[in-house]
């Protein structure tokens, strides 16, 4: 599979599943990407995904995990801005996996 299909929308992705065109993203597509990552989107997941999208909109980058933790703490408090909690939501890495669901490019410096 080299593209996601949801409600008639065909969105191409790279070999790791990151969207090629971030403008094609929508919440339904996010749900589909999450499924392919074996993640059931809960409000807590959405909080992270929406935060990442806002951060990207403002700065044109996805934050490093360390920065994500720091900024989530500032915005939502200590329970949300916690590395363990974030990894519980996104087992393969909050930055990497959540960015994919958020339709963002793979974070800089992520191998």
């Amino acid at each position: 599979m080299s593209s996601y299909e949801v409600n008639g929308l065909v969105a191409e992705h790279d070999e790791e599943g990151y969207l090629k065109d971030i403008h094609q993203w929508n919440p339904e597509l996010a749900g589909l990407i999450a499924q392919s990552e074996n993640i059931n989107m809960t409000p807590d997941h959405w909080e992270v995904v929406n935060f990442l999208r806002d951060y990207y909109e403002e700065y044109q980058i996805a934050p490093a995990v360390r920065i994500l933790v720091k900024e989530m703490t500032k915005k939502f408090g200590k329970e949300k801005g916690d590395q363990k909690a974030l990894y519980a939501l996104f087992p393969y890495g909050p930055a990497k996996q959540a960015c994919k669901i958020a339709g963002l490019p793979k974070p800089t410096g992520c191998v």
Partner: peptide, 14 residues
């Protein structure tokens, strides 16, 4: 092209 000038504003976080 991608406008990466906004990214300089994230440097403070780093």
């Amino acid at each position: 092209m991608k406008n990466f000038s906004k990214t300089y504003k994230a440097l403070g976080d780093y």
